[in-house]
Write a protein that binds this DNA or RNA. Sequence first.
DNA 1: GTTCGCATACTCGGATAGTGGTTGTCCGAGTTGTGTTGG
DNA 2: CCAACACAACTCGGACAACCACTATCCGAGTATGCGAAC
Lengths: 133, 133
Amino acid sequence: MKYSKATNYALHIMLHLAVTSPNQRVGVQQLAEQQDLSPTYLSKILTKLVKAGMIESSSGANGGYRLKPDWENISFLDVIHAIEGSASLFGSCLNNNPDCLIQKVMALAEEKMEEELRHQKISDLAKEATVVL
Amino acid sequence: MKYSKATNYALHIMLHLAVTSPNQRVGVQQLAEQQDLSPTYLSKILTKLVKAGMIESSSGANGGYRLKPDWENISFLDVIHAIEGSASLFGSCLNNNPDCLIQKVMALAEEKMEEELRHQKISDLAKEATVVL
DNA sequence: GTTCGCATACTCGGATAGTGGTTGTCCGAGTTGTGTTGG
DNA sequence: CCAACACAACTCGGACAACCACTATCCGAGTATGCGAAC
């Protein structure tokens, strides 16, 4: 059980955009260089973020990715769900028992974590992180 | 990102043992039948629980698995760590930056979940669950 | 009656394989800005 | 001077491959119990 690297990348990218250039378009090449990963793979991740409505892309020369106007409301959980999907950590109970106590305990614990992640906004972190990325 | 089925199995097995036979030895065959999964695979899971010190095994005829004397203190988190390992959900930061803010946020959120799971004991659930498994 | 040996019932652990998700690469297609060329 | 064109930079998306963890199975080895035969 682990979060995927893609999620890690996505969070770093979002924070990076928020800190350095909230209104400028940035190309994949440049982002890939700064995060030290392949441009083509990064574009997959960015596509997911675009579909989730967090950033917008423009094609052609001088194209690239840019945060959407309402980016300040984006939380960690939003980014994570955009990449990982919003399925529950603990799949449905094996017996198909909807009253499964184990299921309930796990769901409650997961909710605690999500609550924390929902509360943490990228923009809050960006204020702290003018230097450290 | 998902918890493995093995964890789900392990929790069910532990709860089952706690509810039905806290002091009796139970064979793999029997457990596998009740949880509806293959005995050989189940034995792998049980081995992990033995190594984690939660249950004990006896070989030979009339052998099987049994909860250890101090089973009442076992929490959900203990079982999960026994199966999944105790590594953090969010691997280390990509830049190897120990002060990575993202890392810290994720670790905090994870801690919230673990706190809940640590608090939940199998024995507590067993008291509720005399009928429902 | 005691002891030896054997069958039985069980766990243990390694080897192996299928499956699915993650990670990553490659390439063709579409899009936009820019510069150039011909009228 | 301006329009048309060519080119370069860029994103988009599908196809594809490598890799790894999870899931699961099979089998041989070790171990304890219980029963029966032999002394």
